[in-house]
Design a protein around this nucleic acid. Structure first.
Lengths: 332, 332
DNA sequence: TTGTATGCGTTATCAG
DNA sequence: CTGATAACGCATACAA
C-alpha cells in the first residue's frame, strides 16, 4: 500500500505524457490518440489512480454532489422520496449529501449553509413549508433549488408535488358520504401544505353540505405515539371518521382506537395520506391517498439536473397524479 | 445579489488585513489581536462570506464529511442507525454522504470508490457482511472504516454491534420452552451476521434438547412481502413458533398468518430481531430482541472520530448490550 | 501578532 | 493531438 495515493502527475510520469493529457483521458475528451489513451489507461490501472474529486471540484466549480434536506431520517414519507432522488442522481453521476433539519427552521438554515459551503451543485428540500427567512436565503443563492413534496405558497420556486387540495377533498368527500362528523387530523398549520389540506377539507364538507367546525380539526406532529394518544380524544369527539395527513399518526390512531374497543372500519373510518408501507403493516390496512412518492423524488432530481444544465423547463411546478388506494379502514 | 460569492481575499481587502489573518480568524486560531478579529468578523458579516469547504479540503486534506454506506434507504433497521451516526457526526462537525449499495457487493465497491474519490475522512459501512474483495480494498485504504451493526468474521476491522449469537440463542430458547418445533426465518446465509445467528439458533435447540433440522430453517430476503408469502409454507411446516431475523419480514409473516386464520400468539409465536417501530404497528405487537440501533450508529461514529484523531481505542470491536422486549406475539 | 509565499490536485486556456 | 501554465480558494510554514 502506497503511503499516499497517486496524483495526476504520477500517472503522467508513468505514462510518459503530460498531466493535461491524463486529464483529457480521464474526462473522456476525444482529442487523444488511441495509442496515447491506452498508455494512460495502463498507468491509471497500474497506479490505481482515482481522481481527487475535491481538487476537481475546486478547479471546475462543480462538486457533483446534490444536497438533500429532510426533517427526519426515519420517517417513511421522506425515505421513499429519497430513494427516487438517489436513483436519478446516480444516473447523472451525482452523490447526495443528506442533512437532517429536524423540522426546525433555524437548523434548516444552518444545514443549508453547510451544504452551500460544500459547494453542492443543487439542493432538494423536503418538508412541510419553507420559512420566509429561508425563502430569502434561497432567492439570493446561485445554487438551484427544487422543493420535493412541498407546497410553496408563493409558487416562486421550482417544486414537485401532488394536488393536495384535490386529494384531501376527495378523501374527505368519501368519508362525508357515510359519516356525519369527519375529523381532520393534521400536521402543523404553520406549514403551507397543511393550510392547503385544510382548505380541501373545508371544500369537501361544503360540497357534502356538512357543517364545518373548528372543533373537528386536531393539530398534531407526525409521530405514531401522537396518533395513539389521540384516540381517547377522538372517541370523545363523537365523530365516526377521520382523515389523517400522516401514515404514522394514522397507524397510531388506529391502534389506539382498537385498544379502546372501537372497531375499524365498522365504528370508525380512517383515511390516511401517504400510502407508505406503514399502511400495510396495520390491521386493518389503511385506506390512503396514494402519493407517488418515489416519483416525486425522482422528478425533483430530474428537474434539478435540467436547471443545472440550463435546459428549458416548462413551468416551475410539477403536479404529479395521485390515486386513492382503497383498503380496509374504510367501509366498502 | 453578487454574481459570485466572496472569497477570503475579498474579506482580507475589506478588513484591511492579509488573507492569512482572515484564515486564522475563521479557524479560531487564538493568535489574533481581538481588535483585528473584530474587523475581520465585521467584513465577513458584511460580505456574507462563507469559506469554501472544497478549497479548504484541498488545502487541509480534510473534507469534514463521512461516507455512510447502507443497503437501503427505506429499511427501518438502517434508518435508525443513521440517526445515531448523524447526531454524533454533527457534534463533531461532520456531514454525512449517504450512499446506497442496494445490498449488492459490486455496487458497494463502486459507491465506496466514489466516496474515496470525494475524500471522505472516514467510512461507516452498514449491511450484513463484507465481501472478500471489499475487505481487501478497505485494508489497502488509508481512510478509516467502522462497520456498524455488522459482523466481521475475521474481526480485523473496527466494528460496533451486539452479541447476535447470544441474543438469538436467548430468543430461540424462549420459544423452545413452549414449542416443539421452532422455525428460523433468516436472511441470506452468505452474510456473516446470519451464520452467527444460525449458530445461536442451533445452540439454543441443543440447550433445550431439541432436534435440529435443516427443514426448519427458511432463508429469505428482507421484505414485508417475502414474510407475507412465507405464511403458507410456515403453516404447512407444522411448527408453532418462529424466530425471524428481520422486523419487516416478521410483520409480513404475522399478517400472513392472521389472514390464514392462525392466531398469534395462541397458535403460533413469533419473536423478531430488531425492535424497530414496525413492531408497534402490527397487531399483536411483535416480541423482539431489542437492539440499541441508535447507539450502534452513534458509537460507530464516535469510534470513527477517535480513529481519525489517532486517539487510543480499546479493542477493535464494541459489543453493545441488548435486551428482550416482551410484547404480544409470544405467550406470557 | 501579522504578512508572504507555496502547495493542495485538478481543469482549462493557450500555444505549438 | 499534446504540453506548459495559470487559475481555483484556502491552509500553513516561514519570515518579519
Amino acid at each position: 500500500m502506497e503511503d499516499t495515493s497517486a496524483t495526476i502527475y504520477d500517472v503522467a510520469n508513468a505514462a510518459g505524457v503530460s498531466m493535461a493529457t491524463v486529464s483529457r483521458v480521464m474526462n473522456g475528451n476525444p482529442n487523444v490518440k488511441e495509442k496515447t489513451r491506452q498508455k494512460v489507461l495502463a498507468a491509471v490501472d497500474k497506479l490505481d489512480y482515482r481522481p481527487n474529486a475535491i481538487a476537481r471540484g475546486l478547479a471546475s466549480h462543480k462538486s457533483t454532489t446534490i444536497g438533500v434536506v429532510l426533517p427526519s431520517f426515519v420517517h417513511s414519507y421522506y425515505s421513499r422520496m429519497v430513494v427516487g432522488v438517489d436513483d436519478v442522481a446516480r444516473m447523472y453521476d451525482y452523490n447526495i449529501l443528506i442533512v437532517n433539519s429536524d423540522g426546525d427552521a433555524d437548523k434548516e438554515i444552518m444545514v443549508i449553509d453547510d451544504l452551500i459551503s460544500k459547494q453542492v451543485d443543487g439542493l432538494i428540500i423536503m418538508g412541510n413549508s419553507i420559512s420566509e427567512q429561508l425563502r430569502g436565503r434561497i432567492s439570493r443563492m446561485r445554487t438551484p433549488v427544487v422543493l420535493a413534496g412541498m407546497v410553496d405558497k408563493e409558487e416562486q420556486m421550482p417544486a414537485v408535488t401532488i394536488d393536495h387540495f384535490a386529494s384531501v377533498k376527495e378523501a374527505v368527500g368519501l368519508l362525508a358520504k357515510r359519516n356525519q362528523e369527519v375529523l381532520l387530523i393534521i400536521g402543523p398549520m404553520a406549514a403551507a401544505i397543511n393550510t392547503v389540506r385544510y382548505d380541501g377539507y373545508k371544500a369537501a364538507l361544503k360540497a357534502a353540505k356538512r357543517e364545518f367546525s373548528e372543533l373537528n380539526v386536531i393539530e398534531t406532529t407526525y409521530t405514531y405515539k401522537n396518533g395513539y394518544t389521540l384516540a381517547e380524544r377522538v372517541i370523545a369527539s363523537g365523530a365516526t371518521a377521520a382523515f389523517v395527513t400522516d401514515d404514522e399518526v394514522a397507524a397510531g390512531l388506529l391502534n389506539g382506537l382498537l385498544d379502546n374497543g372501537v372497531s375499524v372500519p365498522e365504528d370508525f373510518e380512517i383515511i390516511t395520506a401517504n400510502n407508505t408501507i406503514v399502511t400495510k403493516y396495520t390491521r386493518p390496512n389503511l385506506t390512503s391517498i396514494d402519493q407517488p412518492l418515489y416519483d416525486v423524488g425522482a422528478v425533483s432530481m430530474r428537474f434539478l439536473t435540467k436547471i443545472i444544465a440550463h435546459e428549458e423547463i416548462d413551468g416551475k411546478t410539477a403536479i404529479l397524479p395521485y390515486k386513492m388506494a382503497m383498503k380496509d379502514s374504510t367501509k366498502k
